[in-house]
């Protein structure tokens, strides 16, 4: 696993998200109201909606296209919908955020 520094906690609005472009596609990085940071693929398994554009509530996000709700902690769809989205490891040191990506996948690019 390789760690990539992507910015600071302050770069993301609380109850909000930013996206990060990677060779593996876009990743959504989320900051909750209580300042926890999560990263998931920025791609809803339902119709591909950009999850980083959704409304963040608790440790969940609601997809902007059709209102599916995903847990940021597990990546699982909540409620009646079924599906999941990949979660990406996050490290925060002194307010600086890094995300962990698999080298194998990176090499595949």
């Amino acid at each position: 696993m390789n760690w990539f520094e992507i910015g600071t906690v302050e770069d993301i609005p609380a109850r909000g998200a930013r996206c990060v472009s990677t060779p593996q596609g876009k990743i959504g990085v989320f900051r909750t109201a209580d300042n926890r940071i999560f990263a998931i693929d920025d791609h809803c398994p339902h119709k591909g909606g950009p999850l980083s554009q959704g409304i963040v509530h608790g440790a969940s996000v609601t997809c902007p296209l059709h209102n599916w709700v995903f847990s940021l902690e597990t990546g699982e769809a909540q409620g009646a919908d079924e599906g999941s989205v990949r979660t990406i490891p996050v490290r925060v040191v002194d307010g600086r955020i890094s995300i962990g990506l698999e080298p194998a996948l990176m090499a595949a690019e």
Binding site: N2, F4, G7, I12, R18, V20, P23, K26, V29, L101
Partner: peptide, 17 residues
């Protein structure tokens, strides 16, 4: 501004650990 640009653009090369 933050709404309209990605937070970071990662290339193939990992940044320094």
């Amino acid at each position: 501004k933050h709404e309209f640009r990605p937070m970071a653009n990662l290339s193939f090369q990992p940044a320094a650990e």
